[in-house]
């Protein structure tokens, strides 16, 4: 039995085409049944994310499966889409790489692991997998965990927003109880605040020179708007400040913060200064309990993390190679055992 894989991803296909292939759960079931009905295909799993659409199948004839996949996609999109395709052992290696995040747009991202798991369970629940695919995916889950724990491929954060989240978690632990204040309702501060919200932050205050903008962003993010003249009075209650105003001079100064910090009674304050020119005086980082990060320091941490991940790829590949060999050995032993009985 051959393991076959065919698909397209962000490297081979434009976003426009990937958009056309985006499927709902109902459509996914239909697609899965179509793949499953290709002659010679015994089981199938469809992995569909914003960056890739891939079909995994156990088949006796990979070429027939490829032809079937092509005609299904042609029928759906009305165009001939070039697909990459692999069969054992390359298909096994490819799945291990995909699930470990080595084939992702952001190397080492972990979301893909959950998506692979969901794709498999979607197919398994509908009884469309085979024993071979079951073993392949179970092995994939083990390999991914192994790669994650044995290497630094997932270490650090790779964007300004995720670095900010990581730092906030290293200060406060869980972020559910943290209160965030946004100064300046710009796009970058909104993205950073959304990253924090995705990790549990519930309480949000938005303050902007143009009050209507603050109201709009607060409504969109489920927060509270505040007049810009009053932001400093609310500093006592917040734990994180995201500042990205267009002010030509620093608005967060030692003189302003000193009396306020006394009233905070030792609670830490995390200031994320995303503005250029900077909104916060660098010297406030020296104040007890204040942790200041500007856009440069956040970007530096993010790019260092990406570099660390890139350096780890070689180690990951060698771990994956070992596991591909082990998986093939297991499959061979099983086939021999079945033939003997």
């Amino acid at each position: 039995m051959n393991i076959f894989c065919a698909g397209l991803n962000y490297k081979t296909t434009s976003l426009e085409i990937r958009e056309r292939l985006a499927v709902s759960d109902d459509e996914m079931e239909k697609l899965l049944r179509q793949i499953h009905s290709i002659e010679g295909v015994f089981g199938a799993v469809v992995l569909s994310t914003c960056n890739r659409v891939e079909f995994y199948a156990s088949t006796l004839c990979p070429l027939q499966a490829l032809g079937g996949c092509r005609s299904i996609l042609q029928e759906q999109t009305g165009m001939d889409i070039p697909l990459y395709h692999y069969s054992t052992p390359d298909a096994v290696r490819h799945l291990f790489r995909v699930a470990s995040g080595l084939d992702s747009m952001v190397i080492g991202e972990t979301e893909i692991f959950g998506q692979v798991k969901n794709a498999y369970s979607f197919s398994a629940k509908r009884d469309m997998t085979t024993h071979t695919l079951h073993r392949l995916f179970q092995h994939t889950f083990r390999v991914t965990k192994h790669v994650r724990t044995e290497t630094n491929i997932t270490r650090g954060a790779s964007s300004v927003g995720s670095v900010a989240v990581q730092l906030a978690e290293k200060i406060f632990g869980k972020l559910e109880q943290c209160r965030v204040m946004i100064l300046g309702a710009g796009e970058i501060s909104e993205r950073t605040a959304r990253s924090l919200q995705s990790r549990g932050v519930r309480s949000l205050i938005v303050s902007n020179r143009h009050y209507d903008k603050a109201v709009a962003l607060a409504a969109e993010m489920g927060g509270m708007a505040l007049h810009f003249d009053h932001w400093d009075k609310n500093i006592l209650d917040v734990d994180i400040i995201i500042s990205a105003t267009g002010a030509p001079h620093a608005i967060l100064t030692v003189e302003k913060l000193k009396p306020l910090l006394k009233q905070r009674q030792g609670r830490p304050l995390f200031i994320i200064d995303l503005a250029v020119p900077r909104d916060a005086e660098p010297s406030i980082n020296k104040m007890e309990g204040v942790f200041l990060y500007d856009i440069d320091s956040l970007q530096k941490i993010a790019s260092e993390s990406i570099e660390v991940r890139r350096q780890e790829v070689v180690r990951c590949e060698s771990l994956i190679e070992e596991n591909v060999r082990e998986f093939l050995r297991c499959m061979k032993n099983k086939t021999l055992f079945q033939q003997a009985h």
Binding site: R155, I171, F291, L292, K300, I301
Partner: peptide
Amino acid sequence: LKSQHPDPIFHHLPPI
């Protein structure tokens, strides 16, 4: 955290 340039150990230490 104050250094703005944490070492690798930072990732393994618990929150303050």
